[in-house]
Design a protein around this nucleic acid. Sequence first.
DNA 1: GCGAAAAACTAATAGTATTAGTTTTGTATT
DNA 2: AATACAAAACTAATACTATTAGTTTTTCGC
Lengths: 192, 192
Amino acid sequence: MPRQGLGKESILQAAIALIEEKGIAQFSMGELAKRLNVKPASLYNHVDSLHDLLEQIGLAAISRLTEAENQAIQGKQKDEALFSLAEAYRFFAREHAQLYRLILGLSKLDSQVLEKGAGDIVQPILHVLSTYGLREHQQYHWQRVLRGVMVGFAVHEHAGGFSRFPVDENESYRVAIQCIAEGLHRAGKEAE
Amino acid sequence: MPRQGLGKESILQAAIALIEEKGIAQFSMGELAKRLNVKPASLYNHVDSLHDLLEQIGLAAISRLTEAENQAIQGKQKDEALFSLAEAYRFFAREHAQLYRLILGLSKLDSQVLEKGAGDIVQPILHVLSTYGLREHQQYHWQRVLRGVMVGFAVHEHAGGFSRFPVDENESYRVAIQCIAEGLHRAGKEAE
DNA sequence: GCGAAAAACTAATAGTATTAGTTTTGTATT
DNA sequence: AATACAAAACTAATACTATTAGTTTTTCGC
């Protein structure tokens, strides 16, 4: 086995750290190379392209997000699980704003690799919804509703577009999730 | 008055047309200059920077969006207005995908100019909610809830992340808005 | 027709990702 | 321990970005 260099994994870790520190806007192959004490061109021995690298980082970020979600709902059911999931999602989007941005931006980079990520994201949501006893197609609809609300709030908080009114954002989020909870109860009853 | 050239307005219009045709990813000062039969540097006689230009385009896009919304809710009340507004929002996000992308991305470009845009966006939403007879702070909360859902769905449809389940996306959206409608009725009764 | 003001230009800088071709270097084998 | 190989890292180049400074061209008002 010939010489052992950077390695895909160490590059990925360095890239994630760099993005979380300096922000996605400052990220570049040059900056990454600088941090790894290497010339930019050398990175191409381990990575196909920036596009490819961002995709991998995005997948890693999705993995962290879904892990947090799964942990949040462990052993919980219905409303308790629902609020816990929603809280975990929002917390991640806030605490890892740069990684979350990257996840959002990921969509435009096509790729089949993301198919896996998309599946992972949906899983904890479906798990929570499964405790409400909905019919299958209802479960799919409500999965979109819940995901829509969580994404919508996250996007807006990133944009700072929620700060213009004198009411607490946490409370707004609670209202939203409570609204969904009641919708889920109704749908659950109809399915009986 | 000396020689009359491109002018801010014609540049803006050309930029919007170019973005809608070729997509925001292909947009650059060079491409814009090419379309205007001018060298890139010449654009700087009329525009401060790409950043500045994108901001102006974003404001124009917001203006078109809110115009569509206001038209959609004209003469309507409560649920009828609510569904009509939601439909108009989604329609715009779909039909002007590139411009909508730009609006979403606008947030990261700070600027005070956007304050106006943010106000415009909120206005039709508040107008619809005002027909439900909520208390003021409730109205602010529900404004965020509704906006969150609309943004969330739009973002997801852009990402193509909704297509993985065999249920109609239009119906999912209807479920979401209906959920909010019922929440609004409850909140309206509590306020009586 | 003339002067001035602004538009459009040329040329340059600094940044981006990326590729081809060369050199270095670590490791595994003899 | 010396060597050969393979991959890592390098240098140098290309082709894009946005942007600025300085120069030339144009055209409007007089």
